Simulated scan of single mutants.
Amino acid sequence: MIDTDELAKRNAEFADGGSFGNLKLLPSGGLTVIGCVDPRVDPSDVLGLELGEAAVIRNVGGRVTPATLRTLEMLSKVVQARTGGPRPGAVHYVVLHHSDCGITDLAAFPELLADYFDVPAGDLDAKAVTEPAAAVRVDVGILKQKLPAGAFVSGLVYDVATGLIDIVVAPARVET
């Protein structure tokens, strides 16, 4: 188990590096990644992101749920408060799912999943919980309906066995 003493030691090493000193609140890469909480799939490592390049939202399965949409709305309000308007420059949202995801085990608990997605249990098939590529397409479709025009959205599936990503949905601009 990693205890707080170890965390404090690691933090001191991080702080000594000073690489965080000039970071801004808004991601320098104009990127927001929605990914899974699985410790094998840290989006920063998997996608080679540097500190400050992306905002990362993680939840079970990396899914676009009502809670995810509320988080995105809150983030847009933070941006408005800081900049006086929408996020400047190109904005890219990436849905990152992965193989061997634990959410597939939750298919045996339809009531739990229905609550997670805020849908009736009978509508769970439309969420493609057991198929990562299909789930990416579902979630990208939801984002395209909810995000402002001009944002880019794409979808990836990470293979935990090979370490490679598959581009399931190429980046596309959200239309009005």
Rank of each mutant, 00 (worst) to 15 (best):
A151P: 01
S44Y: 09
A133R: 14
G52D: 09
R82L: 14
I34S: 01
D123F: 02
V95N: 02
R58S: 09
D118Q: 15
G84V: 07
V91S: 04
G35C: 02
A170I: 10
D166S: 13
P27R: 01
G21V: 10
N22H: 11
P110A: 03
A172L: 09
D115L: 06
L25D: 06
E50C: 13
L49Q: 05
V168K: 09
D166P: 09
D105N: 11
A107F: 01
R87K: 13
A128N: 12
D159H: 04
R63L: 05
D118C: 11
A107D: 09
P39D: 11
R87P: 04
D125R: 11
Y116N: 02
A107M: 10
V174C: 13
G155C: 06
D5E: 14
S28V: 05
E50Y: 08
H92N: 07
V174G: 08
V64A: 05
R70K: 13
V91M: 06
T130K: 15
I34C: 05
V119H: 04
K127M: 13
H97A: 11
V119Y: 05
V168P: 08
A151Q: 05
L96M: 11
E73R: 14
P86H: 10
T83I: 09
S28A: 14
R63K: 10
A90N: 09
L106A: 07
V94A: 01
S154K: 05
M1R: 12
P27D: 00
I34Q: 02
I103Y: 02
Y93K: 01
G29W: 02
T68P: 08
P39L: 03
T130W: 00
A114R: 09
K127L: 11
D166C: 06
A8C: 09
V78H: 08
T65D: 03
I103V: 12
Q80A: 15
G155S: 06
P132L: 10
E13W: 06
V168R: 03
G163F: 04
L72V: 10
E53D: 07
S19V: 15
L51D: 11
V136G: 06
S28M: 01
A12S: 07
D100V: 05
A133S: 14
V138K: 05
E175G: 07
I142S: 00
L112N: 09
D105T: 10
V157Y: 01
F20H: 13
F109L: 13
P43T: 03
A134F: 06
E175F: 01
T68Q: 00
L7K: 12
V79N: 09
G150A: 08
F20K: 04
T176G: 12
A133W: 05
S19H: 12
C36L: 12
D118W: 01
G30L: 07
I2N: 01
P86F: 02
T130F: 00
F20P: 00
V33N: 02
P132H: 07
Q145S: 14
L75C: 04
Q145G: 05
P88D: 07
L143N: 00
K144M: 15
L75M: 14
V64I: 15
I2R: 12
F109C: 07
G62S: 10
D118E: 14
L31Q: 06
D3V: 03
L23G: 04
L164T: 14
P43K: 03
L7Q: 11
D42P: 00
G62N: 08
H92W: 03
L75E: 08
V41C: 13
P66Q: 08
S99T: 15
V46I: 13
P148K: 07
A67T: 14
K144S: 12
D3F: 04
